[in-house]
């Protein structure tokens, strides 16, 4: 299973901040597609992705136990 973390508007949209989802061997892009369908989650195209706390490409392949965070445009400072 992949651990998914959601923040800011994505968290509000889904109503939760963490979830587990089957995704071993998927790319980040495939995981995004799956989440879009399963949760009707909008706006995943324009967010950054972090895998295990480092920014990652859409092509990055995921393994069981990975933590994937979807990172909307940041606004700290």
């Amino acid at each position: 299973m992949i651990n998914v973390l959601l923040f800011a508007q994505l968290k509000d949209e889904l109503g939760k901040e963490t979830l587990s989802i089957e995704g071993n061997g998927m790319s980040v892009a495939q995981l995004k597609g799956k989440m879009k369908i399963e949760f009707q989650l909008e706006g995943l195209e324009t967010v950054m992705t972090a895998v295990n706390e480092e920014f990652a490409d859409d092509e990055t392949i995921l393994s069981d136990g990975d933590t994937v965070a979807f990172i909307p445009p940041v606004s700290g400072g």
Binding site: A8, Q9, F55, P73, V74, S75, G76, G77
Partner: peptide
């Protein structure tokens, strides 16, 4: 403002919104 995953939600008199990029 480019790379640190921190987000700001503004609460206005007439609503609230997560501030984008």
């Amino acid at each position: 403002k480019e790379i640190v995953p921190i987000w700001k939600k503004e609460h206005w008199e007439d609503g609230e919104t997560w501030v984008g990029n």
